[in-house]
């Protein structure tokens, strides 16, 4: 079954859902389906139970961090220069918000096919990080979604037990995000070089040791 037929099957059976095929240019050819969070649970239930698919095995749940980018574009605007109106080129910078993404790899143990890949994105990386949990549909997502909550900070609504799983409870950061800064406890080698030397230097200036 191709991803296009799966898409039209879902559209026929889950009214109002918004789907988008994300094509994958690599030789693996594993294209994926971006689903909208509002209909995620209905889509997941359909994929699990509908006869030709029966994707009963949610194998892998992954979080991916896509930080915001600074996009600079050149725009021509009219400006008064020395009293004369001139067309001046200016660089305008816009900061995108970025988003967090969750990827589900689905297989069928009954029909022995797969993977069908679903993706969901949050709206940004700060406050609007809620996504529906698919643990009620596939129990196997329980620990993996907890891990994404812990390491990426995605809040899964409807998860039965959303706590930190790998880090301790009082920990405040989300270390798998790409902008995470780890505590300064680098090992100081006797002969530091490259990155380690740089870190050792920074540390020394902070500590005020000569």
């Amino acid at each position: 079954m191709t991803l296009e037929t799966i898409e039209s099957e879902i559209e026929a059976n889950v009214p109002g859902c918004v789907l988008e095929i994300v094509s994958n240019p690599s030789p693996s050819g594993q294209h994926s389906l971006r689903i909208d969070p509002a209909h995620a649970v209905a889509i997941a239930t359909f994929l699990r139970d509908a006869e030709p698919l029966r994707l009963d095995y949610c194998s892998n749940v992954t979080g991916v961090d896509w930080p915001g980018k600074e996009i600079s574009e050149k725009v021509k605007i009219k400006k008064l220069v020395d009293g004369v109106e001139q067309e001046v080129e200016e660089v305008r910078k816009t900061q995108t918000l970025g988003h967090l993404e969750v990827v589900y790899h689905l297989y069928s143990m009954e029909k022995k096919h797969g993977p069908v890949i679903l993706r969901m994105s949050t709206e940004d990386r700060a406050d609007r990080v809620h996504l529906p949990s698919l643990t009620p549909v596939w129990r196997s997502a329980e620990f993996q979604e907890r891990e994404i909550f812990d390491l990426y900070g995605v809040i899964f609504d409807g998860h039965p037990d959303l706590r930190r799983i790998l880090m301790w409870d009082g920990f405040q950061d989300h270390p798998m995000r790409r902008d995470y800064v780890e505590p300064d406890d680098f090992e100081y080698e006797p002969t530091p070089h490259d990155e380690v030397l740089e870190r050792a230097r920074q540390h020394r200036t902070i500590m005020g040791v000569q």
Partner: peptide, 19 residues
């Protein structure tokens, strides 16, 4: 963010780095 304290100074101190 980290363990508190991040090391026990009675037992361990960062070795002096020759830089």
């Amino acid at each position: 963010h980290d363990l508190d304290p991040s090391q026990n100074p009675e037992v361990w101190q960062a070795p002096l780095v020759n830089i």
